[in-house]
Each structure stands twice: as structure tokens, then as C-alpha cells.
Write a protein that binds this DNA or RNA. Structure first.
Lengths: 215, 215
DNA sequence: TAATGTGAAAACCTTCACAGCT
DNA sequence: AGCTGTGAAGGTTTTCACATTA
């Protein structure tokens, strides 16, 4: 993915982008603890990443440190939030309000980070019309129309495996640009719609590989 | 991580191990559809991975295909399940029975894959003693003793950020070898305890990077 | 003939090591 | 004096391309 400094577009490896939230997370804790300055050495220790890696990662986006001193925690937090786009508020819609979807609706971790679920959809007639907190569950068939009159770019998908592919296609055609997908992985290559999969079973399966005796 | 073929130990890159559940997932679907043979080309198309990558990945573990033909779906499923250790049943304990923990307890996706949550722990006195399905919630202080008289190697952690580090240390000292961690990332380097983090906020934050205008 | 299995090449990512700045 | 920022080196992962085999 590109990042431009002074009009020069630079390719930032995706692995680097995915480490930034982790840095930000640790820096935010330091900020709460009123730490003013942090070196790549200290940050590396806290993040379990080599100091060189941290400096290199940050260097893709500019020069944020002071040589001989380190990084200002406040400045680095501010800049990382800008880089990630987390300084903005993001409206998100939720697809699927089963057990998992409901847990996500009431998950208190999204809003403080600027992610606000403002609409929820399902296909189950028993669910449609129900009120959960501030949100009234809408019929999935209305989603395309709804998204056309909104600026939502992000969807969280928590639907059964059997309908995931259809839902993702529908979201794509409705203009959704990014998906956090809790359904078991559905490979789909809509370039210009980015999907992050959360699949606990796959994670467990790669853990058991390491637990087996005969490996 | 090592894998031995005919007594020769081979280093398998961790990225490779983490792709295997994905292959297995797609192959299982093919199996249900009664597909008998699949080529790396077809599998690659379905998995959105290059055919060469798939062949290379599989070659770390042996020769499963027939030249000129492709791979037998049944054989490949069987072998991948053995390689991942998913042909076995795994007992798992859950730490934290808040909203998320309860959703995980009733998540129907674990058991069919051989992951059985057989105990749950919390520190909240209101929760302790409660019965959820077949499971009675135990006091977290009893966990070390409990684990010593069991063969559980895997824990799923769904506790508040503030106590995650303590819990992970406690699990480590109780002999837990693998953790699926839903709490915001806690860097900790206990070699010989493997941690997989699931952090939806971090995932969303790396998505918004790509959605910003000025990148 | 068609597709695997695999060395070798290419691409990518991490670490090193030090010039340069404060 | 101390730590950043960064080319260059080193290591890892992916892709290529073809010999091999059913």
C-alpha cells in the first residue's frame, strides 16, 4: 500500500501496517502512565519487536524521533493515529445478529477507538425489527439501498458459513470497501474490497500442530 | 517448527503451518461435494493462493499427489488432519465468562473440529458456581490445581485487558502450552507457550489505514 | 500428456552497523 | 554521548520453470 511523504509515494509492506496498531496500543498505555519519551529500545522491549524493526517500520512514514533522545510518546501516538486513520470516526454496519453478532453489538471496545456500529442487518424475520440498544435490526434485503444513502465503508460480518459468500458479494456491490469477517474463511478476490478474517478454529488448528507429539 | 519425514527433521516455516487450516477448510468443502481429485491449480483458485505456493507448502510434509493427476481430496484431508493434529480430540479450558466468554462457550464451531471446552474459570464471585450448559464456573484461584490433575494444554482467554498479563503468567506456570487470546495484545515471551491473538480492533485499525484518502 | 515436486531465482522482510543529528 | 534514520547485508518466503513420473 502507498504512503506519500512530500508527494513521494512509498510502498509500505502490509506486515508493517499490521504492526502499527500494536505499537499504538503500547504507546497509548505509556501515554496513560504519563511517559513522555520512549526509545526504540524500550518500545521494542514492550512490544517484543527488535528496536531496528521499529525504527525501520516508522521510517516508512517519516522521521518522528529525536536523535540522541528517542520518540515523544504524545507525538508518536498522534502521528500513528493519523497514519492509521484512527483519528477519525468510522461508521460501521453489522451483518448477522445471532449469538456472535449480538456479542459484537454490545462489545465495549469498538466505540472508544472510533468504530461505531450504527446499523445491523439480518435475514431472520424473528430478529428483524427488534431493538438492541440504540439499534433496530433491519432486513438484509434493504442493505443495498441503505448503504447507498450512507457513507459507511466498513462492515462486520457474523453470519453462518453457508451464506457468507453471498453476503460478501452483496456488500461488495453495495460499495463496502473493508470487511471484518467472523465467518469461516470465504476466499473471494474483489480487489478494492479488503477482508480481514477472524477464525478462531483456524487459529486453534495451527496451535495443535505445535502440540502434537510427533512433529 | 520441525516436521520429520522418515526420521529427517525439516523446518517448516510458521506461515506455512498457518495456511494449512485454510487448505483443510476448502478441501473439507470439496469432500462434502464429493469431489475426488483436485489439482493445485483448482485448489489455488479456491484458496486464492498460487498453485506453486500450495505445492511447495505441501512438499514440506511429503508427496501426496499423483503426477499428471492431482491430489486425492480424501487423502489430502486425512493427511492434513494428521499433520495439524486435528484428528485428535483436544480439551480446552476457558478463562473469563463475561459477555465474550459466554459467547465462546456456546459457540457451536469448536466441538465439531475436536475442541471441547470442558472447564471455565472466572474471578467474579457472582459468576462462580453458575452452571452454563454442562459447565460449572470455577474460581480462578483453583486453576493451577485443576490443571495439574488434567491433561489440558490449551486455554482460551477472554478476560479484561487489565488482568491479561497475570492470567497468562498463571497459565504458563500451570503448564498450559497454547493460548487463544481474545484480550488486547499482551506481549510476553514465554517460549514453550504459544499465543495466538485475536484482536478485532487492531484488525479494524489496519483496515482504516487503507480507507483513508491521503495515502 | 498433464500435473506434481523441487532446485534455483526473484521478491520480500528483517537485521546490521554506522553516519549523522541533537 | 546517545539514539535515530537508513543503505546494505543477510535471511526468509514466494515464484519460476522444468525434470520427473503416473
Amino acid at each position: 500500500m502507498n504512503y506519500s511523504i512530500n508527494g513521494n509515494s512509498i510502498i509500505v509492506p502490509e506486515v508493517v501496517v499490521q504492526r502499527l496498531p500494536h505499537y499504538l496500543n503500547i504507546l497509548s498505555i505509556l501515554q496513560v502512565e504519563k511517559t513522555k519519551i520512549v526509545s526504540s529500545e524500550q518500545l521494542g522491549y514492550l512490544a517484543q519487536i527488535t528496536p531496528a524493526q521499529i525504527r525501520k517500520d516508522l521510517s516508512y512514514f517519516g522521521k518522528f524521533g529525536k536523535q540522541g533522545k528517542g520518540y515523544s510518546v504524545n507525538i508518536l501516538v498522534k502521528r500513528l493515529r493519523e497514519i492509521l486513520g484512527v483519528n477519525l470516526q468510522w461508521e460501521v454496519c453489522l451483518i448477522g445478529v445471532g449469538r456472535l453478532g449480538r456479542a459484537l453489538l454490545s462489545y465495549p471496545g469498538f466505540a472508544p477507538e472510533g468504530f461505531n456500529i450504527i446499523a445491523a442487518f439480518d435475514s431472520d424475520l424473528k430478529q428483524i425489527g427488534q431493538q438492541i440498544g440504540k439499534i433496530k435490526i433491519k432486513n438484509i434485503v434493504e442493505i443495498e439501498e441503505f448503504l447507498q444513502s450512507s457513507s459507511i465503508q466498513i462492515a462486520i460480518v457474523a453470519v453462518p458459513a453457508s451464506v457468507t459468500k453471498d453476503i460478501l458479494n452483496q456488500l461488495y456491490h453495495s460499495g463496502i470497501k473493508a470487511v471484518l469477517n467472523y465467518a469461516p474463511f470465504t476466499p473471494l478476490d474483489h480487489k478494492d474490497m479488503i477482508i480481514r478474517n477472524i477464525d478462531p478454529v483456524a487459529s486453534l488448528q495451527s496451535l495443535t500442530y505445535h502440540l502434537k507429539e510427533n512433529n
